[in-house]
Design a protein around this nucleic acid. Structure first.
Lengths: 186, 186
DNA sequence: CTTGCCTATGCAACGAGTTGCATAGCAGGA
DNA sequence: TCCTGCTATGCAACTCGTTGCATAGGCAAG
């Protein structure tokens, strides 16, 4: 399970509330881990119970109060332990690929719009990552170790989105080539 | 949920037992969807209960009997329905990336061996996919629609592994650049 | 002949992740 | 004024996915 460790990393980079963490998971952290606010709140409570994090109630004006979490020493130890353990290389789950292969038994042309929709989402993500890269990692800057590590992870997100866009173009070309010809119509 | 649909696609391409499906999910289907035999058996029973698939008991000699599943018309209908529905673009979950970013608060050099291990796994997968491509999709062949769709999905798996290898090299270079310098030692 | 591996299916328990809903104050636009 | 949307946290119920274990016959190596 990496969610609790992703939260530890994020809180070490910058303490914050569950809500703020949820937004980070929608943005900067989203290119290597995702989570909903429900998961985050639940895991934060468990981590607090286990002494991994500490809470501080913060009153705000014009907004609801929030609970700001920061990492306690046992949490830091748990992260170090986990860093030293091996983890399984991830396996892919791509339901669009299931659909593409399933299109052999349905309507290939009908998948074109869906594929284009996915392409638009990935193009938007790529644009967002590239903008973030320009903003946070200007070419001339001297980066400390933390920033260099953040940057190499972001480069991974960028590479993933570029690769995905190229593949979706390949899928679109294939579907269009097959368009009109309905194979295996039963 | 795409597991049941992935099973439908696989059974339409070729009927088989739960055990055989599990092996396909370890091999050809593994580059776009994964599942353990537990999940597969459970989902197969549900699909049978719902009339999506039909079972036939097959006695074998020298081996345990098996139950061979094939897709029934309602299953085919369910697949068509699902193909017409939009699905959410997948989100990534890459725990190695969590570790890389976490290395800022631990030992970057200690991650090198782990990263190399991941690299070896992905290199092996790429080699396997490329061998499968040469075997199943020779350049000169005329491919029918189903084979073309299988091929484009395989190209996606190949592109993913190549991209991942490149990124892991990038990560290794970054970790080695930081090697020795322990940032933020608390 | 025993140990380990492969085929083949399955139960039980647990942990991870999703979905729908609830609350509650404030801000801004129609 | 009402409706929508944002901040902020949370409960309850459910499904998905993993892990450990069990059974059971056959095969091959040591």
């Amino acid at each position: 399970m990496a969610l609790e460790h992703a939260i530890l990393v994020s809180l070490l980079e910058q303490p914050g509330s569950g809500y703020e963490l949820a937004r980070r998971f929608d943005r900067s952290i989203g290119y290597f881990w995702t989570a909903t606010h429900q998961q985050i709140y639940r895991v934060l409570r468990r981590m607090e119970r286990d002494g991994w994090v500490e809470v501080r109630d913060v009153a705000q004006d014009g907004r609801p109060d929030k609970k700001v979490y920061s990492v306690a020493p046992p949490g830091r130890g748990a992260l170090s332990d986990w860093l030293a353990e091996p983890v399984e290389p991830e396996s892919v789950r791509h339901s669009l690929a299931v659909k593409v292969r399933g299109a052999a038994f349905g309507d290939p042309a009908g998948l074109i719009a869906e594929t284009e929709r996915h392409r638009a989402v990935h193009a938007e993500r790529l644009a967002r990552y590239l903008a973030g890269e320009q903003r946070d990692f200007p070419e001339s800057a001297e980066l400390d170790a933390g920033a260099q590590l953040q940057h190499v992870v972001l480069r991974g997100g960028i590479a993933y989105e570029r690769m995905t866009l190229d593949w979706l173009d390949d899928v679109l070309a294939t579907l269009r080539r097959l368009g009109g010809a309905h194979p295996d119509p039963h």
